[in-house]
Amino acid sequence: MRPRKENPDIAQLVFDQLIAALPNIVSQVAARLNANQTSNSEPRPPRECTYKTFRACNPKEFNRTKGVVGLLSWLESVESVLHISKCTEGNKVEHAACLLQGRALTWWNTLVQARGREAANRIPWEDFKKLLKDEYCPKSELQKLEMELWNLEMKGDDISAYTTRFHELANLVSHLVTPEEVRIERYIWGLSPEIRGNITSANPKTIQEAVEIATKLTNNAVRSGGLAKGKRKIEEFGD
């Protein structure tokens, strides 16, 4: 049986129809590919920080045994954990309150009884910090830290000790050196007069930049004899 011959007119017609439809086919395929890529690229909502995740970061407990410095240091460390664990605002107080021990826990339980647990856990983080400070930070102790920061000066060539103590105090009473330009100005003010002017002229934009310039200028001044050697021991900062 002989194979049937194709009608050249019909074959040409089919070919022409395919050529005409090809742009539409390509457009449809491209649209579907773009839609899939857009869907896959949409950011997923962040996972809510669970208490297990928070505790996995090993936050410190607080039992109010080390005074105002202990509280301020604890708040600083807890805020670091809250940031690392990506804890949402609504969970911060509830998670942090679980770290309170001893008399601090008694204080929290009294607050829960007065306001109700749900309302207490909804307290904004900044308000929670203020309540703790009002309870455990006598004004006299805070004023001592503030005065030490304002009077802190670099002695001799010990730029390292001065910088370390400055950071410690600045973190404890951060309201005195906020925003960062105020922190930079106060840091520069306490440096040795031999290098203070040069750092001011350099106009550092961040505290880290100011520290790096100050360290470099101090080392250069010591090597050239422009800065007298001699270190005053600064007491190690405790909790």
Score class of each variant (00 low, 15 high):
M1G: 14
R2Q: 12
R2F: 11
P3D: 12
R4H: 05
K5V: 13
L13A: 14
V14F: 15
V14N: 13
V14T: 09
F15C: 10
D16M: 09
D16Y: 10
A21S: 10
L22Q: 15
L22D: 12
V26F: 12
S27R: 12
A30H: 12
L33C: 10
L33T: 12
Q37K: 14
S41N: 12
E42G: 00
P43W: 08
P45R: 09
P46N: 06
P46L: 03
E48C: 04
K52V: 04
F54M: 01
R55M: 06
K60Y: 12
T65G: 08
V68R: 02
V69A: 07
L71D: 04
L75Y: 06
L75S: 05
E76D: 15
E76V: 07
V78N: 03
S80E: 15
V81F: 03
V81I: 07
I84G: 01
K86G: 09
T88G: 11
G90N: 14
H95M: 03
A96Y: 01
L99G: 00
R103K: 11
A104Y: 00
W108H: 03
T110D: 15
L111I: 02
A114R: 13
G116C: 00
A119W: 08
N121H: 09
P124G: 01
E126W: 12
K130N: 08
Y136H: 05
C137L: 07
P138S: 05
E141K: 14
L142R: 09
E148W: 07
E148Q: 08
L152Q: 03
M154I: 04
M154L: 07
K155L: 10
G156D: 07
D158R: 04
Y162C: 03
F166L: 06
F166E: 00
H167A: 11
A170T: 07
A170M: 00
S174V: 08
S174Y: 12
S174A: 10
E180S: 09
V182L: 07
V182A: 12
I184W: 04
E185V: 09
L191P: 04
I195N: 01
T200W: 13
S201C: 07
Q208M: 06
A210C: 05
V211S: 02
E212Y: 14
I213Y: 05
K216F: 11
L217N: 06
L217V: 06
N220F: 10
L227G: 05
G230M: 04
